[in-house]
Amino acid sequence: MEKSVDATSSDRKKRLESWLKKVVHPLIKMKENIILFCKTVLKGVSKGSLDDENDEISVDRAVLESNEMHPWKTKVLDDFKAWLSDVPDQAPPALSVTPDTCDLYTLLSEFTALKQEIKMQNREQHRTLKALDQITAMTDAYGEIMAHFNEKTRQIAALEHNIRVETEKRTVLYFLDIRDSLVRGRAACPAPVSKKGFFQRTPKNMDNIRDGYDMAIRKFDASLALLDIQPIASTGAVFDPMIMKALESKAAEGMEKGTVVETVSGGFRRGDEILRYAQVIVAD
């Protein structure tokens, strides 16, 4: 009876040990595999040697494969190896922040500084745009002022021209009668020469007087030409109501009807403008 009880307890003990081996042993192997994997990664980062890392990873991989790793673990190791092979042996010279110093506080500080800089740039851009708008408004106002100034300058120049022309016209009108007197004096010179009698003598130097009248008339006309004023030819011409005024008409031998017989006062024009109409006597 005692032998059967001992045999039963012995069988239970063996079954318990067998169950523990089946359950605990895989857990122990998984723990060992995880520790080996972490050691491999830490050694690769600290040493920075690609050959040693590859060798250690291959050794660890062989160890892990020998412990019957799952396929997804093998794939993870292959991906990590490929990534690690692409990493350069030395850090770039422009890299100022290392993984050890780039903590969350540093990253937050950099983002805060960047945000403040963006705000400052936006503020300066807004000020610049506002200044440009003011400059554009000032430019438009300056253009309007210059256009108004140019218009007023043109109006003043036109007013000055009109005043000068009107002043010259009024001033010249007083001297036109003098030219009429010179013309009448020249026309009267041959009259005494034609009158001869026993008790009447021809005036001396009459030709010189007539030449003097001609010279005075030429100088007068030259002075008028400086002001663009020209005398209107009337005596012997056909009557033109656009530039002449008929004071009377009379019969004249040897002249056709409508021909100017005599000019009482000469006419003058300035360009297309008639300064004074010629007052004439027309043949009837």
Rank of each mutant, 00 (worst) to 15 (best):
L129F: 05
S234A: 15
A278K: 00
A252E: 05
P192H: 09
I34V: 13
S265D: 13
L108H: 09
M206V: 11
D100T: 13
I178Y: 09
L104W: 06
S223W: 13
A222C: 07
E56A: 03
L104Q: 06
A147V: 08
T153L: 14
A278E: 03
E110F: 13
E110Q: 11
M146S: 15
K21F: 05
V63R: 10
E17N: 00
G267P: 04
N33M: 14
E256G: 13
P93L: 05
R164S: 10
A113N: 04
M206H: 04
N150P: 03
R269C: 03
F220T: 02
L50S: 09
N54Q: 15
T259S: 01
R270L: 01
E160N: 12
M120Q: 14
L64H: 00
Y174H: 14
L173E: 03
E262W: 02
Y105F: 12
G185K: 04
I118V: 12
G254V: 03
Q279S: 04
A158L: 12
D55V: 12
D211W: 07
D89G: 11
M30Q: 14
V76W: 14
T139E: 13
L224R: 00
I145P: 06
G254H: 09
L129D: 05
L275H: 05
A141M: 06
V183C: 05
L159G: 12
L224I: 05
V41K: 06
H70D: 10
K43Y: 14
D78W: 08
A237K: 06
A246Q: 04
T112R: 13
A82F: 11
V261W: 02
R154C: 07
I28G: 01
T106G: 08
A191C: 10
E56R: 03
A187M: 05
E248F: 01
K47S: 00
R127Q: 02
K257V: 08
I135Q: 15
T136I: 12
H126E: 13
K3A: 01
P231S: 06
G48M: 04
K169W: 09
A158V: 09
A141F: 00
N54S: 15
R123G: 10
R170K: 11
S96R: 15
T98N: 01
I34N: 07
A137P: 08
Q279L: 08
V172H: 04
D60V: 09
L27W: 12
R184Q: 11
A237S: 11
D103P: 02
P231Q: 08
K119I: 08
P92G: 05
V165F: 14
I274K: 08
L77G: 04
A157K: 00
K115H: 15
L50P: 08
V76G: 12
K3G: 04
M120T: 15
S234H: 05
P241G: 04
V63Y: 11
I156L: 12
I281V: 15
F220H: 01
D284C: 08
E168Q: 07
F199G: 00
N67V: 06
A237T: 09
A278S: 12
